[in-house]
């Protein structure tokens, strides 16, 4: 049964409902991005003016080895963080999904609480523990070991991204496990499978959509993250977002920054499309 009403039957209410959000979207989201797109084909003229010359020079420059390396590094760092999130997040989601109701609520709140906490505060807290005179190195020192340079490394960035994004991985996986028909797991046990075999042969394949969603929800923000590499990374751990920021705030090369921003956006869409494909193929019988 078609439940929607044709807009021509009620053009007034239709316009009143859709108008404001669509207007806001076009004016304050689509238009600014269109300007960025236009600038990405522009050249700097003088100090403050930009001519939209239709050049591809900015994109060509973005593909130079220096910047290509940064793109690759961003991919590697975000990928590593996502992988660690999955390794930690799946067992956590599994434990939460099948815990007693009271325990489940408690664990869910514990996972969600950091998400509600300010990102900057969390990053700063992690830095406090990792810095040279922080808790971890303090513990190492107490054991008579030399301090490790934990902060301002690529590892620190990965750890920071895991710290910030873990709830995004856990929640979709939890949601898909929670929807899972428990009798499927019981059937697997009943047919002679061990718990471990059941997890790999029944739970994991059936939780695939949730796992993919969790991976995407972690990978996309990680790929474009600015704050974590900025605060926790060393000079060697710049990610794309940091380079973009530099073009706008320090180097004052807006056209190049605009081109980089759009490349990052295309990469994001690519990741989304890849997930859609992956999921679509599995859904086919």
């Amino acid at each position: 049964m078609e439940k929607r009403v044709d807009w021509r039957q009620a053009p007034g209410p239709f316009a009143a409902l859709l108008g404001p959000p669509l207007g806001w979207f076009l004016l304050f989201f689509a238009a600014p991005l269109a300007v960025v797109l236009a600038y990405s084909f522009g050249t700097n003229v003088g100090v403050a003016d930009i001519a939209i010359s239709g050049t591809f020079a900015n994109y060509a420059r973005a593909l130079e080895p220096v910047y290509l390396a940064i793109f690759l590094k961003s991919f590697a760092i975000a990928g590593a963080a996502t992988f660690v999130c999955l390794l930690l997040g799946f067992p956590v989601a599994l434990a939460i999904a099948f815990a007693q109701p009271r325990v489940r609520t408690l664990l869910l709140v514990l996972v969600m609480l950091p998400f509600w906490t300010n990102l900057l505060i969390r990053t700063y807290a992690l830095m406090t523990v990792l810095r040279d005179e922080g808790l971890v190195n303090g513990a190492l020192g107490a054991l008579g070991l030399p301090p490790l340079p934990l902060l301002y490394t690529n590892g620190a960035v990965i750890l920071g991204l895991v710290y910030v994004h873990l709830p995004f991985t856990v929640l979709p996986i939890y949601a898909s496990l929670d929807r899972l028909d428990r009798s499927l797991i019981e059937a697997s046990l009943d047919l002679g499978a061990s718990h471990l075999a059941t997890v790999f042969r029944v739970v994991l394949p059936l939780a695939r959509p949730g796992i993919l969603a969790g991976l995407l929800l972690t990978f996309i923000p990680a790929l474009g993250s600015y704050l974590t590499p900025d605060l926790m990374g060393g000079p060697d751990s710049q990610m794309i977002a940091n380079v973009i920021e530099r073009q706008f705030k320090r180097a004052n090369d807006w056209p190049f920054g605009a081109a980089l921003a759009f490349l990052l956006m295309y990469l994001t869409f690519l990741a989304l499309a890849a997930q859609g494909l992956f999921r679509g193929r599995r859904a086919e019988p």
Partner: peptide
């Protein structure tokens, strides 16, 4: 071995 109420056939 059990035949479940929902059948629990692995989808």
């Amino acid at each position: 071995n059990m035949v479940f109420q929902s059948y629990a056939v692995f989808p």
